[in-house]
């Protein structure tokens, strides 16, 4: 099992909650299609797409790094985790630019329900991502140890799985908030 059973309890728990979020969004959308379509036209797809690409790339590097570290301690492995951390930082920066862009244009959460869902769901997701970045910093420090014990590998796997959770939740949010029309 990747990581340990506990991290999967966390992951499935979060997937359940986000599944509910997704359902709520599409349900509310189906009740006021026009409003959502109208608001959706003001979304900039590039922000969302770039963030998707950043997360996917980061996820790949964390897997490659983990595979390397399983073969024994190596600088390559820890550097790959650093690349993932940079992808995460890029996501945060991009999100900051997007939020300020939206707020400058007058699209605040109180204006309409599309933007209310947009800000709340992406905000909760961003919180998950920031927790994941703390996890990546811890993983980086573990990866730089001269010798990796079984416990270290387990913790690295758990951190990696959490990071992939952040990635896959964003994939669905991207589809629902940016692409659905």
């Amino acid at each position: 099992m990747p990581g340990e059973i506990g991290i999967w309890v966390f992951i499935f728990g979060d997937m359940l909650v986000f599944g509910l979020f997704f359902g709520v969004f599409v349900y509310e959308r189906s009740r006021s299609v026009e409003l959502f379509e109208h608001a959706h036209e003001t979304m900039d797809l590039t922000f969302g797409a770039v963030n998707t690409l950043l997360l996917l790339t980061g996820s790949m590097f964390v897997v490659l790094g983990l595979n390397t570290l399983r073969g024994g301690a190596s600088r390559t492995g820890s550097r790959m985790i650093l690349v993932t951390l940079l992808c995460g930082a890029g996501f945060v920066l991009n999100k900051y630019l997007e939020y300020s862009d939206k707020i400058d244009a007058g699209h605040t959460p109180s204006v309409n329900s599309f933007y209310m869902y947009y800000f709340v769901f992406t905000g909760i997701h961003l919180l998950h991502l920031l927790i994941g970045m703390i996890g990546l910093v811890i993983m980086y420090r573990i990866a730089r140890k001269p010798v990796l014990e079984a416990r270290d590998i387990r913790n690295l796997e758990a951190g990696a799985c959490y990071w992939h959770l952040v990635d896959l939740l964003w994939i669905v949010l991207f589809a629902l908030l940016y692409l659905m029309r």
Binding site: G6, V9, D14
Partner: peptide
């Protein structure tokens, strides 16, 4: 050990309660 993760997940799940300050209707 797994209940440690369960407890942290529970803590994260209390957070959405905070939306009560901002919304007067709907799921929030």
């Amino acid at each position: 050990r797994w209940t440690g993760y369960f407890s942290i997940w529970s803590g994260v799940c209390f957070m959405p309660g905070g939306t009560v300050w901002f919304f007067k209707s709907g799921p929030f």
